[in-house]
């Protein structure tokens, strides 16, 4: 199977039904994308496929062949972090940090669709679960990044 992950073409030998999450984690060792529930409920596994936020734990790998998959590892670079990553640091969002990759990918998809999201937009788009309760800082960081983009 040919996949395009973070701008690079990779070949994986996997069952086409294998969820993208496990292709990323177990075959490609891209462990930034997390496993939380396996049923698309928590969003820890969120990646972007052609810009859209997708829950990779229920996305068959074959369904993303030929499409652009972006994981947290491809969101920014150490030299050039994504504005959301910079905002996440400025707002000191993470606590345990486990859900944050998925949060950031969901937020990145939101900002691409709505560069100036309202509170209601953020409420609707950010359905990821954070058990540490970082939500208010997630909201603040999204707004900060949206401001920085303008």
């Amino acid at each position: 199977m040919d996949l395009n992950i973070n701008g690079a073409r990779v070949q994986v030998d996997a069952d086409p039904a294998m969820p993208l999450l496990w292709v990323l984690r177990d075959l490609l060792e891209l462990t930034g994308t997390k496993f939380g529930c396996g049923v698309a409920a928590c969003g820890a596994c969120t990646v972007r496929v052609d810009g859209q936020a997708v829950r990779s734990c229920v996305t068959p790998a074959a369904s993303v062949a030929g499409r652009n998959v972006q994981t947290i590892e491809g969101l920014g670079t150490p030299g050039k972090p994504h504005p959301l990553q910079a905002a996440w640091i400025a707002e000191q969002v993470p606590q345990c940090g486990y859900c944050q990759s998925g949060m950031l990918m969901a937020a990145a998809a939101l900002l691409e669709r709505k560069p100036k999201p309202t509170d209601a937009d953020i409420d609707a788009a950010m359905t990821n679960i954070c058990r540490c309760g970082t939500y208010q800082r997630v909201r603040a960081a999204i707004k900060r990044a949206a401001g920085a983009k303008a």
């Binding site: 997390k34 972090p81 990553q85 993470p94 940090g97």
Partner: peptide, 18 residues
């Protein structure tokens, strides 16, 4: 600022499962 935050926003933080 927390010392563990940068690695928790770029996916490099290592949890048990990683």
């Amino acid at each position: 600022p927390r010392l563990d935050v940068p690695q928790k926003v770029d996916g490099s933080a290592r949890f048990g499962i990683d």
